[in-house]
Nucleic acid binder design. Structure first.
Length: 589
RNA sequence: GGGGGCGUAGCUCAAUUGGUUAGAGUACCGGACUGUCGAUCCGGUGGUUGCGGGUUCGAGUCCCGUCGCCCUCGCCA
């Protein structure tokens, strides 16, 4: 063992170690030079320990005075209880310090481009600078805690699923491009010029083939790649817990995931999630929350007001209803005096951003409404509005009239905006609202291409009772599909698959795919279904988003060690970059 | 591709209506200091105001263009 190698980590030493000779390795977190006395806070992944250099060792003290932030050092010394009253209660190791006997500078460090040392309430440096020097940013304890939490998440998942009899199987990264879905990342083949592999958007087809192969309970923590634009919760390269089970229906998948959810929150955060998880029908979610991934930590539920709007003289409402639109609204309890005319205008801007034409508002008083549209609302309608929205004096009612999907979008986003400005979410509270969203429609209308498109994916089984309407009324067919929603994020989604080749073929037909086209694109799957495919279904959980929930961050880059920026560029390595002409030539490009 | 926000010292920010030599904290450098813990005190270095052009007697500030970063719409079966 080299003389500088550590005996303990920087998070380890306690009062009971007093008197022991130790060696610590780590980075200089802070230094406090007092002339005849130098203190160093030494940092590693496990914690921080104070090292003290005393005046008896003149040369050593002089060397310690040269130390700067982020130097990597080895300290040989003796653990010592701190002087009475000098303990640091903010530090796990604060009862002790290490009296240095020997200092080895393992590596020096220039002044870092930003401070690594973390303090409460400090402003972080620009994110692009921190991404450029990601290895420095990753030294920050808060980021280290986040990645440790992510490790814990994956560890709990693997242990739990192993106990439940699941088998982890890897599937290819180099696969075949399949149409529909996200844009593929493509990889050229050297051996077959002008031919391309696609990186997987998900292991979807492989896991179904594993079911055909009899593996029964499969999982994989799998990297997925989609060449689409990024968001705060979306990276081009992300990780799914991919799962599939044979001989199951929806309730079996729910039971497994609910057990897993409970284990994860209990073991990662000590939080109990009440089971069974609530189930929300898609149509109800859209009506009540304007969103298929509602944040259930606060109310502000949307109510249908179309029937009442029909009884008014307000042309905007009546015109909307006559052209098939909807009138819906929500009650912002006790908020009438929280929004000035200017504040209400800003709320109007929010809904306009989502294409709504405008926002009607009503300030509720004990015996009357104050509102620009009050004169159009007959007394019985006013009374009915009070009842429908449980309105009391001091409440603020907000109403949108438009096409149904516009109303949902506008009010759904308004709801989130209100929760934000009214601070309805306590960031300190470990509050998790987990729910299933079910009863999704199988198909959505692609108006541009004038055809039906798969809402989930084309291998999703329709509800048995809707099977007869597959050709006659595709829009009314519901799917055996389900999403798992946590605090307003879609954290998982899956379905029971079609295991019958005839049903699969009928579904392709609805999607406007001929037998030949289907064979061309998914022939291997259709063939496999013929060879004794068991009934099967599964789900994929977004590991990055789960990690965001557990780490309580809204930024997916916080839970990925080396993320891409919003343009899908790696600011640290500079990828993507040019390649040699020789490489291109070999690939026939 | 569209909308919004941002870009000033290594870092975080300020700079009245367009007006003197662009400031502060921190970091960094030098000095003092034997119980500090975001040490303290004294002194100092540090600026292509993202880049290019324009308007003006005068531009960090106004205009045009451009680059970069973040949020968002579209997109993400």
């Amino acid at each position: 063992m080299a003389s500088w190698q550590r005996t303990h980590t920087c998070g380890e030493l306690r009062a009971e170690h007093a008197g022991q000779a130790v060696v610590l390795n780590g980075w200089v977190n802070t230094y406090r030079n007092q002339g005849g006395l130098v203190f160093i806070d030494l940092r590693d992944r496990y914690g921080v320990t104070q090292v003290v250099f005393e005046s008896e060792r003149v040369e050593l003290l002089k060397a310690a005075q040269e130390l700067r932030s982020e130097f990597v050092v080895s300290i040989r010394g003796q653990v010592s209880r701190r002087l009475e009253g000098k303990e640091n209660k903010d530090l796990a190791t604060g009862a002790v310090e290490v009296k240095a006997h020997e200092l080895t500078i393992l590596n020096r460090c220039p002044t870092p481009p930003f401070e690594v040392t973390e303090f409460a309430a400090q402003e972080l440096a620009n994110e692009d600078l921190r991404l450029q020097y990601r290895y420095l940013d990753l030294r920050r304890p808060s980021l280290q805690r986040t990645l440790m939490m992510r490790h814990r998440l994956c560890k709990v998942i693997r242990d739990h699923l192993d106990q439940q009899g699941f088998l982890e199987v890897e599937t290819p990264l180099l696969g075949r491009s399949t149409p529909e879905g996200a844009r593929d990342y493509l990889v050229p083949s050297r051996v077959f010029p002008k031919s391309w592999f696609a990186l997987p958007q998900s292991p979807q087809l492989y896991k179904q083939l594993l079911m055909v192969a009899g593996y029964d309970k499969y999982f994989q923590i799998a990297r997925c790649l989609r060449d689409e634009d990024l968001r705060a919760d979306r990276q081009p390269e992300f990780t799914q817990l991919d799962m599939e089970m044979s001989f199951v229906e929806m309730d079996d998948v729910f039971a497994v995931i609910e057990g897993l959810t409970s284990a994860v929150f209990q073991q990662c955060l000590g939080v109990s999630i009440p089971l069974p998880l609530p189930r929300l029908r898609y149509a109800d979610a859209m009506l009540r929350y304007g969103n298929d991934k509602p944040d259930l930590r606060y109310g502000l539920e949307i109510a249908e007001l179309s029937d009442l709007a029909a009884q008014t003289e307000f042309q905007v409402f009546r015109g909307t209803l006559e052209s098939g639109g909807k009138v819906r609204g929500l009650n912002v309890v006790a908020a009438a005096d929280k929004f000035s005319r200017k504040g209400l205008d800003e709320l109007g801007e929010v809904v306009k951003r989502y294409n709504a034409k405008g926002l009607a508002w009503i300030k509720v008083e004990a015996d009357k409404f104050t509102s620009p549209i009050e004169k159009f609302l007959p007394a019985p309608v006013q009374q009915a509005l009070r009842e429908r929205l449980s309105a009391k004096a001091g409440d603020l009612l907000l109403i949108v009239a438009d096409k149904e999907d516009t109303v949902c979008q506008a009010l759904g986003n308004l709801r989130a905006h209100l929760a934000n400005v009214l601070k309805l979410i306590d960031p300190e509270k470990l509050d998790y609202k987990v729910a299933w969203v079910i009863d999704f429609p199988s198909f959505i209308r692609d108006e541009e291409e004038n055809r039906w498109a798969a809402n989930h994916h084309p291998f999703t089984a329709p509800m048995d009772e809707d099977l007869a309407k597959l050709e006659s009324d595709p829009g009314s067919v519901r799917a055996k599909a389900y999403d798992l929603v946590i605090n307003g994020y879609e954290c998982g989604g899956g379905s029971i698959r079609i295991h019958n080749p005839d049903v699969q073929q009928r579904l392709f037909s609805v999607l406007g795919m001929s037998r030949e086209q289907a064979q061309e694109r998914f022939g291997f799957l259709l063939d496999a279904l013929k060879f004794g495919a068991p009934p099967h279904g599964g789900i994929a959980l977004g590991i990055d988003r789960w990690a965001m929930m557990l780490a309580r961050t809204g930024n997916i880059r916080d839970v990925i060690a080396f993320p891409k920026n919003q343009k899908a560029r790696d600011l640290m390595t500079g990828a993507p970059g040019a390649v040699d002409a020789k490489q291109l030539k070999e690939l026939g490009l």
